[in-house]
């Protein structure tokens, strides 16, 4: 019993519970919606998770350091538009260059956020609330209120969302989803096994202790914002590939969804703890709910935002109430066996 308790770190338990909840949601909807559990659901949800998942990872990096990035939606919109326009004007651009371009543009915007937060010491919530508006304005100015249209985009891009890496009967592992998995594994490795990753946690866990250990806190926070921007840029590219038509409001609302995914995924909003895996599970949960609610005829699809709000609240509440209890219980049990 105690051995199990020792292995069951609170963070692990949190992820297990979420996984269980996802199952519950699946079972619930499969009883109320006909033909719910099928390959189409998997394909559709996995594709939209690919987008939200990468963005949730971006958000996690920043939130781990006790900051927040509300400008990710605008960054996604801007990169999607920018890359889309470049591609419409010049069909010669190769996929790799397009992706790098997206990441680069995102990194640039992220570094502006990072500069204001880390160097100018402005609270992240203010900076990114501001740049959320600024980047959106930038997009409006740049686009001159024009829309990127699918017809002008190169064929490889439009085909991208339907490219499969693996197929089993009608279940498809789409390239974009595989791409997300690569990002997940990469960042899980970085956070868990590199000194940079550990510093990210350290800075969020106790900034003062981090400073005392000689960590360049501000540099680390800056890097987190740049990485967040880069991943938002990558998301922008995926967004472009998936939707094709990009308007000036593209990606708005994603900032809240990404924060929601992270919070639902058990990342502490005050920094220092949480995992990439959890954040992605949070994204799965949110996309699953959205996709299911749309198909649930008994209820207006307009309910989904209201539900999303409640979901965020309850998951934070369980964190602060139930998980705290479990943490204390575990510590008590373990210290009893120690002494």
């Amino acid at each position: 019993m105690n051995d199990l308790l020792r292995k069951l770190r609170p963070e692990r338990l949190r992820e297990l519970v979420l996984l269980l909840l996802i199952l519950v949601v699946l079972i619930f909807f499969s009883t109320v919606i006909e033909h719910y559990l099928n390959a189409r659901l998997f394909n559709r949800v996995s594709t939209s998770v690919a987008i939200l998942g990468v963005l949730a990872i971006a958000q996690t990096l920043v939130i781990l350091t006790r900051n927040i990035d509300l400008s990710v939606g605008s960054m996604v919109g801007f990169t999607a538009y920018f890359v889309g326009q470049q591609l419409s004007q010049n069909n010669e651009i190769t996929p790799l260059v397009a992706i790098l371009m997206a990441i680069g543009v995102g990194a640039l915007m992220g570094s502006f956020n990072g500069f204001l937060v880390a160097v100018c010491r402005i609270p992240a919530i203010i900076v990114t609330l501001g740049t959320m508006a600024l980047y959106r304005t930038l997009l409006v100015e740049y686009s001159d209120a024009q829309t990127v249209l699918t017809v002008n985009l190169p064929k490889w891009l439009l085909d991208l969302p339907r490219v499969n890496v693996l197929s089993y009967e009608r279940l498809n592992l789409r390239l974009m989803v595989a791409g997300m998995f690569i990002v997940v594994i990469l960042f899980q490795l970085i956070l868990r096994n590199t000194s940079f990753g550990r510093k990210l946690y350290a800075v969020g866990s106790n900034p003062e202790a981090a400073r005392n250990s000689g960590f360049p806190n501000q540099k680390i926070i800056f890097t987190a914002f740049v990485l967040c921007g880069s991943l938002a840029g990558l998301t922008g590219f995926m967004f472009l590939a998936r939707f094709g038509n990009i308007t000036v409001v593209a990606g708005s609302g994603l900032e809240l969804k990404s924060v929601a995914a992270v919070v639902v995924g058990g990342v502490n909003i005050f920094g220092g703890s949480g995992s990439i895996f959890g954040a992605v599970l949070g994204a799965v949960m949110i996309d699953l709910l959205e996709n299911s609610l749309i198909r649930w005829l008994q209820i207006s699809e307009f309910w989904r935002d209201a539900m999303l709000g409640i979901l965020i609240l309850t998951s934070v509440a369980t964190d602060s109430v139930i998980m705290k209890r479990f943490r204390n219980y575990r510590l008590k049990k373990l210290s009893q066996t120690n002494s």
Binding site: A260, W303, I312, S320
Partner: peptide, 27 residues
């Protein structure tokens, strides 16, 4: 209620309700 009883950060609670109230309006 969530802020005072559950001691949740108001940033998170009201962010959730930013989505939630808007959702209700749309409903």
């Amino acid at each position: 209620y969530w802020i005072t009883v559950f001691k949740l950060p108001s940033l998170v609670v009201t962010l959730a309700m930013l989505i939630g109230f808007r959702g209700l309006a749309r409903v």
